[in-house]
Nucleic acid binder design. Structure first.
Lengths: 151, 151
DNA sequence: TTATTATTTGCAAATGATTCGCATTTGCAT
DNA sequence: ATGCAAATGCGAATCATTTGCAAATAATAA
């Protein structure tokens, strides 16, 4: 076992994501364990390149192709959510039960999460009115700080 | 003037988009006139390739690079809206004053437009509550027909 | 523990959408 | 009609992402 792997032990309590992988018959590789660890530590919405950078501090050998493959796998399994804010690359976050939407600061790129039950309700209602069952949705607000004096 | 250009005359009444182009000091080229014509005839949300196909039936020589450039220009001018539904390429529609959102049929790919004032209002309110001025937003609902008996 | 085998990985090459460089063409003001 | 900046067409470049394949490895059986 190489030193870089010491901190993410194969023997530790399996995390939620690890359980899901095992449940799907996926192998718990060192790379996947590291990626899961990085995801669980991330409070933001990193893109693949950022994830790869973070993962590389733990294991510098891990390939970016593996990060791509793993994130695709996780997205298909529904354990992470993929977002396409308007910068051309996909950004990810661990999926959680409480659904939230995003407010993106166009000045800084900062992403603010929010929840609004009323909007959730209206969305279901609209889908229903059109004869559809709502499976997922995407709500993104783009704005600038009102008290920002620049410009 | 080549035959293929006969139906989109340089001398016809300028359309809304043509006026905007002229107002911005852009040249009204044959290619742009054709693209504008195609846009005005399109009721759907075509991607670049589709637009290029449609444009090609009028002028088979027009380059796809020109369609890309023109659509980018139009988007930056705010005369068309670009959407990133989840199929990896951008889709366009002529911008209209009355804002609407989209309900995407995951079975057929069909895109249904809808308007909901209440949601619009709530979005502004949310942005405001977070200290932001809302500049734009994206709301997409993904669903399947309820009466669809398949699977 | 070791052997077995199907998964997974790393690498580099392929892909697909989109943009760009540059020589040539073309609106449009004079 | 003339001149020139803007626009086009072409193919090459770019950028994010995917994929083929040989080597490595996790899960399993022995």
């Amino acid at each position: 076992m190489k030193a870089s792997n010491m901190e993410i032990s194969k023997h530790a309590e399996p995390t939620r994501l690890e359980k899901i992988c095992i449940g799907k018959g996926l192998r718990m590789t060192e790379q996947r364990r590291i990626i899961i660890h990085v995801l669980s530590q991330s409070e933001d919405h990193p893109d693949i390149e950022t994830l790869h950078k973070r993962v590389s501090t733990i294991d510098p050998i891990i390939s970016i192709a593996t990060v791509y493959r793993t994130m695709r796998l996780f997205e298909e399994s529904g354990v992470v959510e993929r977002h396409e804010f308007q910068d051309g690359r996909s950004r990810y976050e661990e999926a959680s039960d409480d659904h939230h939407d995003h407010l993106i600061d166009l000045r800084s790129g900062e992403v603010i999460e929010f929840i609004n039950e009323e909007i959730e309700r209206l969305q279901h209602q609209i889908a229903e009115e059109h004869g559809y069952k709502l499976l997922s949705h995407k709500l993104e607000l783009y704005g600038v700080p009102v008290d920002d004096r620049r410009r």
